[in-house]
Simulated assay, not measured.
Amino acid sequence: MAGGSAIRGSRVGAGPMGEAERGESAPREVFSYYCAKGHVTRPSFAVGDDREIPAEWDCTRCGLPGGLDPNNPPEPLRNEPYKTHLAYVKERRTEAEGQELLNEALDALRARRGFVAAE
C-alpha cells in the first residue's frame, strides 16, 4: 500500500491561476523613462483618470534617475564627498579668524599652566 498525500508536491493555494480565478487585470499603459547613460526603463501603470505618472523613475540598470523625454534625461544626482570636521570649520572661518582663535586658546592654556608669554 502506497502511503502519502494525494496533494503531494503542491502547496496551499497552488493550482492553475488564470483570469477566471483572479478576475480581469486592470488595463495598463507602458511608459518609457530614459536615463543619462542611455538606458531605457519601461514600467507599466494602470489606466485611469486619477492616476499620477511620476516625472522621474530610477533606472533599473544603473540607478540614475530617468525622465520621460529621451532627448533631455535628468541630471545624475551629485553626491557630496565626505567632509571632515576641519573642512566644516574652514567653511565657517577665515584663516585669520582661525589663527586668532588659536592664539587666544594658547594664551589661556599658558595662563592656566603658569607660563609667562614672551613679548
Results as ranks from 00 to 15, higher is better:
Ala14Phe: 00
Ala105Asn: 13
Thr60Phe: 00
Ala55Gln: 09
Leu106Arg: 14
Gly3Asn: 03
Asp69Ile: 02
Glu24Cys: 07
Glu97Met: 10
Glu97Phe: 08
Arg92Trp: 00
Ile7Thr: 03
Glu119Cys: 03
Gly18Asn: 15
Leu109Ile: 05
Ala36Val: 00
Glu80Asp: 15
Leu86Thr: 06
Gly13His: 09
Val116Lys: 15
Ser5Gly: 04
Asp50Ile: 06
Asp107Gln: 12
Val89Leu: 15
Gly48Leu: 11
Glu80Gly: 13
Pro43Trp: 06
Tyr33Cys: 11
Arg113Gly: 06
Phe115Cys: 04
Pro76Asp: 06
Glu29Leu: 14
Thr94Glu: 14
Glu56Leu: 04
Ala2Glu: 09
Gly3Ser: 11
Ala105Gly: 12
Gly38Thr: 05
Gly15Arg: 08
Pro81Tyr: 01
Ala96Phe: 01
Ser10Thr: 12
Thr84Arg: 01
Met1Cys: 03
Cys62Leu: 04
Tyr88Gly: 11
Ala111Tyr: 06
Pro27Ser: 15
Leu68Pro: 01
Gly38Met: 11
Gly63Cys: 05
Arg11Lys: 12
Trp57Val: 05
Gly13Leu: 09
Pro16Cys: 04
Glu19Tyr: 07
Met17Lys: 15
Arg78Ala: 13
Cys35Gly: 10
Ala46His: 11
Glu95Leu: 09
Ala117Phe: 03
Glu80Val: 10
Pro27Ile: 07
Gly13Asn: 06
Thr41Tyr: 05
Pro76Cys: 07
Gly48Phe: 09
Ala20Thr: 01
Asp69Lys: 00
Leu106Trp: 07
Ala20Leu: 11
